[in-house]
């Protein structure tokens, strides 16, 4: 009996559209709540250093004197703790994951 079940299952899925998507040609469907790339907007930021203190991996460095905000993308684990802590809503986690990081340099804004 089980052979028929498996054959039926195989036939059913052979006639259906594939469950996978042709990835590089069709980008992945974005899910609204996904924790993707951390993005920073300069306006409004008061360089209060709260995000850097809350970051569990110490990926963020803030220089108040020079008004610079920097992130080490290779350290960031996209946990969203800085987003919750930011008093001015300058930080957001976008659902898209962004391009891969290929250098060890800090990204400075």
């Amino acid at each position: 009996m089980a052979y028929f079940k498996m054959s039926w299952l195989a036939l059913k899925w052979a006639l259906k559209k594939p469950a996978t998507s042709p990835y590089p040609f069709v980008p992945r469907r974005l899910l609204a709540g996904s924790r993707g790339k951390l993005s920073f907007t300069k306006d409004g930021c008061v360089y209060c250093n709260v995000c850097a203190k809350k970051c569990p991996t110490h990926a963020i460095v803030v220089n108040r004197a020079n008004k610079k905000w920097a992130i080490d993308r290779l350290r960031c684990i996209a946990c969203g703790y800085c987003v919750e802590a930011c008093p001015k809503d300058s930080l957001t986690l976008k659902p898209e994951h962004g391009a891969p990081t290929i250098t060890r340099d800090r990204e400075i804004h």
Binding site: L31, A32, G33, S34, R35, A78, G80
Partner: peptide, 12 residues
């Protein structure tokens, strides 16, 4: 899981 928590296997 990803839509509700933001991660696929590391829910966080």
């Amino acid at each position: 899981i990803e839509a509700t928590t933001g991660g696929r296997v590391i829910f966080g």
